[in-house]
């Protein structure tokens, strides 16, 4: 089995293999770091796979949640609304989820149940910017 992932600050490549094939597998593994091919076709395939994943799977609501908890630069409105999938240019797709920060109602929210005046939260603006930079 072989795979790789990137966490917040590290990328990890790993594999396991039956003992008799270890030396050969380790050699091939090393080559990626010494002289990777990054062939055009493999690059295109990977790009396509990422694009498909992004389109097919609404993002977990946990990922913006983590950002609200961890991003010190972000001022979060007490109520905001964003889409679960990456916000598309043509309008919101995917299910909508709503997060409410406790304590007082948001000053821009005139009455409970009304649409918040802040329809685009700072959070989704950050998201948009990231999408743009990544795109």
């Amino acid at each position: 089995m072989s795979n790789a992932y990137t966490s917040m600050e590290n990328t990890n490549y790993y594999f396991d293999v039956q003992q008799e094939h270890f030396a050969g597998a380790l050699d091939r593994f090393a080559q990626f770091f010494i002289k990777p091919l990054f062939t055009q076709s493999a690059t295109d395939r990977e790009l396509n796979a990422i694009e498909c994943e992004q389109r097919a799977q609404p993002r977990s609501p946990c990922s913006p949640l983590i950002r609200t908890r961890c991003c010190p630069q972000l001022r979060i409105p007490r109520t905001y609304r964003t889409t679960c999938g990456a916000p598309s240019r043509s309008g919101a797709t995917g299910s909508t989820w709503v997060a409410l920060l406790s304590s007082d109602p948001h000053p821009l929210l005139s009455a409970a149940g009304e649409e918040p005046v802040l329809s685009r939260s700072p959070l989704s603006q950050v998201w948009d910017r990231e999408q743009r930079d990544a795109g």
Binding site: P61, L65, S95, W97, V98, A99, L101, S102
Partner: peptide, 9 residues
């Protein structure tokens, strides 16, 4: 000191 409520999909 915040509670964040999320309506999940």
């Amino acid at each position: 000191g915040h509670t964040v409520y999320v309506v999940p999909v």
